[in-house]
């Protein structure tokens, strides 16, 4: 059965788009049929991270307004044949999204795909609430710092009140994805620890993605980090998170500083 996921955070710049692309690619590599949907109308990025920016002809808004059919707007990834992108419009804004239009698009995607991953814009306004509206489950992306954690807390509250599932009296399943985790800075108390974040948000943990240059390197070449260097620390963490999403029990590894130094030495030697 199709699963609609929303990747959301409240705060901007925490890694929603990176995580959407990385998890989408990881799930697609496992053989599932995946579509990633960019809800950041007006400030789209997902096309760039997937390296599909030059192939965008029609977008989500065109489909909602009936200018194009859904299959015309879906872009198939060049590396993975079962990964698709539904891009956002760059020239419009979030007001162009309509409640019915989004509902129809999600319903049609549910018939075609195993996973529908909605990349939410930052904020708690129309774009973000429509992105989460039809979600079965949510991935809350959080950096281990206070402002990001508080914004995530706010988003979790909205997931429990503003989604279609919540209005039917059901619960949106929630997963916490901690990104940009730096073990050294956490050990020195410059960052919240994993335990602090979990204690504040009381939400089950899906994965811990370590801070890494690999993420920037991958996005610069328009490739999800899980495809660019599948053996890098962030890619492995995303692959584990994707397997947990599918219900597998995988032990959670908290990246440690000694491991980080080892990786750095290793990385240098390889380069």
């Amino acid at each position: 059965m199709a699963q609609v996921l929303v990747v959301t955070s409240g705060k901007g710049g925490v890694g929603k788009t990176t995580s959407t692309a990385a998890l989408g690619a990881a799930l697609a590599r496992g053989g599932d049929k995946v579509v990633v949907v960019d809800f950041d109308v007006g400030l789209r990025n997902l096309d760039l991270v997937l390296g599909a920016e030059r192939r965008v002809v029609f977008d989500l808004i065109n489909v909602i307004h009936g200018v194009a059919k859904l299959p015309q707007a879906l872009i198939r990834d060049k590396r993975l044949e079962n990964l698709f992108l539904l891009p956002a419009s760059q020239t419009r804004d979030k007001d162009a999204l309509t409640d019915d239009g989004v509902a129809n698009v999600i319903a049609e995607l549910r018939r075609k795909f195993d996973w529908i991953i909605c990349d939410s814009p930052a904020g708690i306004e129309r774009g973000a609430t429509l992105a989460m509206r039809h979600a079965d489950a949510a991935i809350i992306v959080t950096n281990p710092e206070v402002s990001s954690v508080r914004d995530s807390d706010r988003i979790i509250g909205l997931l429990d009140s503003k989604t279609a599932k919540a209005e039917r009296g059901e619960r949106v399943e929630k997963h916490l994805l901690i990104t940009r985790y730096h073990p050294g800075r956490a050990a020195r108390g410059e960052m919240l620890s994993i335990d602090d974040v979990l204690e504040i948000l009381s939400t089950p943990l899906l994965g811990i993605i370590p801070e890494s240059e690999e993420v920037l390197r991958a996005s610069n070449v328009g490739t999800p980090v899980t495809l660019n260097n599948a053996l890098s620390a962030p890619a492995r963490a995303y692959f584990d998170a994707a397997r947990r999403l599918k219900g597998e029990e995988i032990p959670m590894l908290v990246p440690s500083e000694s491991r980080g130094i080892f990786n750095k030495l290793f990385g240098r030697k390889a380069a």
Binding site: I124, R150, D153, R154, G157, L158, D160, S202
Partner: peptide
């Protein structure tokens, strides 16, 4: 019975 979230 639930946590009260930011903004609520």
């Amino acid at each position: 019975e639930e946590p009260v979230r930011s903004g609520q």
